[in-house]
Amino acid sequence: MSRPDTLIVVPARNEAQSIVPLIREIRQAAPTLPILVLDDGSTDDTGPLAQAAGASVLSFAYHLGLGGCVQAAYQYAFSEGFQYVIRLDGDGQHDPRDIPRMAFALQTSGCELVIASRYLNHSATRQITPRTVGTKVFQFILRILLDQEVTDPTSGYVGVNRRALELFSRSFPLEYPEIEALVVLQRRAFRFKEIPTTMRAREHGRSTLTPARVVFYMIHVLLGVFVNIVRIPSPMALFRRSKQ
């Protein structure tokens, strides 16, 4: 029997209450696909529980941050020869029943990145919260930079193909990676598309995004995007390019 070409990646930190039901749901939605849980320095039993539930676990020695642990998963997937990686959050807000649609979009669209959007087709109500305000700001900026609308730029429910895996396994934003990753892809002339999804309410734990963090997040991401736009290649890189 040949090995599946898609890996499901679940970043999780202190999600002991939600990780086992989530793994069960993923198994129901995509029974043949391997699951890799990224235990980002949890202080509870997230890692052992995920392992007992049948998932592989990447356990990090300390809290690496979302970008750092997702990049490790991309490095692992790339070295193991996977063609696609689908990532969904460990808090259970992303519906695993969308995995087959996501995999189909990755395989058939030719896009390097597929984003599950809660706002496409108006599937989520837009209450005015710090997060939705931030999303609006990023939508506006990304529309200018990418010349394409991204309805849910902060979505963590994404799939990537092998070309994006190769790029991201070498270089990936370490903090708040979603928006910077889009800009990085655009600079490489990679394509992306959105598919609609429905985000579920978090059943356990609390979101780490407080209003103060949303402001910090916005400043951090805007700076990251700006740096990516104006990044000047090193003289050595220019020399190598001229020799090619």
Partner: peptide, 20 residues
């Protein structure tokens, strides 16, 4: 910080490969 992150990533991957 970059070096430390790369080490932690490598360590986690090696641990997983060892368990497998």
């Amino acid at each position: 910080r970059d070096d430390n992150t790369a080490l932690a990533q490598r360590l986690a991957i090696l641990e997983l490969e060892l368990r497998k």
